[in-house]
């Protein structure tokens, strides 16, 4: 599934990024690379964007960006 479908409070592990070039790099700069554990932390009061916890940092992604991040839910992954 993709990151935008991850329910709030749930953990998952990033499996792939559906992006190329600059946008991909920016997400990797923010710590989203395959194998990273991620948790949907909170959603903006207006419904979008959502803040994700990636190794202690709170990274905010808009829904369109979250849709390009493939994750596998359920397992806790390496921390």
């Amino acid at each position: 599934m993709t990151l935008d479908e991850l329910p709030r409070g749930q953990r998952a592990v990033v499996t792939a990024l559906d992006l190329r070039g600059g946008e991909r790099r920016r997400l990797m700069d923010l710590g989203l690379l395959p194998g990273a554990a991620i948790r949907a932390d909170m959603t903006s009061p207006l419904g979008d964007p959502t803040a994700y916890e990636v190794r202690g940092a709170l990274v905010v992604l808009r829904r369109g960006q979250a849709r390009t991040v493939h994750v596998e839910a359920g397992c806790s992954g390496e921390s």
């Binding site: 990797m28 700069d29 923010l30 710590g31 190794r55 202690g56 940092a57």
Partner: peptide, 9 residues
């Protein structure tokens, strides 16, 4: 120090 992984690249 709290986000070493993000800083190491």
């Amino acid at each position: 120090a709290t986000r070493l992984e993000r800083n190491l690249p």
